[in-house]
Computed example of a mutant assay.
Amino acid sequence: MTSTILLRTTLAAVLITAALPANAGPSMTTSLQATTLDLAECLKRGEAIMREAGLTRNLQVLQLTVYGEQGDYTASVRCVPGKDVVLFVVAGPRPDRASKVMSELKDKF
C-alpha cells in the first residue's frame, strides 16, 4: 500500500511539473560604445534613442542613466563621464529580440 501511495505521489508530481510553464530567466545583453558627447548631450541622445526604439514605458532619465521598457523588454543607456563611453543593457525573455533591441539602440546612438 505504501508503494502505491509513493507511486501515485510521484506520478502526480511529474504531471504537475510537466504542466507548468518553463520559467527560464531573462536574457541580457550588454555593450559599450565610445562617445565624445558630454554628460548632458549623452543623456539627451540616450532618451531620444529610447523613444525612437519604442522603449517609452516607465521612461526615466536619472543622473547617469536613461531607462525604458517595451513589453517584456527593459533597456538602459548609461553615460560614463570621464571615460568617453556609453553602456547599453537590454534584458528580456528572448535572446534574439534582446540582441535586436541592443543593435537598434547602438545604431541610433
Rank of each mutant, 00 (worst) to 15 (best):
T2A: 15
L6N: 02
L6K: 05
T10P: 10
T10D: 09
A12E: 04
L15R: 06
I16H: 09
A18D: 00
A19Y: 09
A19I: 05
A19P: 01
L20P: 07
L20D: 06
P21D: 09
N23K: 11
G25N: 09
G25E: 14
G25K: 13
P26I: 00
S27Q: 02
S27D: 03
T29P: 00
T29D: 06
T29Q: 03
L32W: 09
L32N: 14
L32D: 07
L32M: 14
L32T: 13
T35Y: 10
T35N: 03
T36K: 14
T36D: 15
L37E: 13
K44C: 12
K44P: 06
E47Q: 06
E47M: 05
I49N: 03
R51L: 07
R51Q: 12
R51W: 00
E52H: 13
L55G: 02
T56C: 02
R57E: 09
N58W: 01
L59A: 02
Q60V: 14
Q60W: 09
V61Q: 04
L64A: 06
T65M: 04
T65V: 13
G71W: 10
Y73R: 02
A75N: 01
A75K: 03
R78A: 12
G82H: 05
V85Y: 02
V89C: 11
G92W: 01
D96E: 12
R97M: 10
A98D: 00
K100L: 12
S103G: 11
K106T: 09
D107I: 13
K108Y: 04
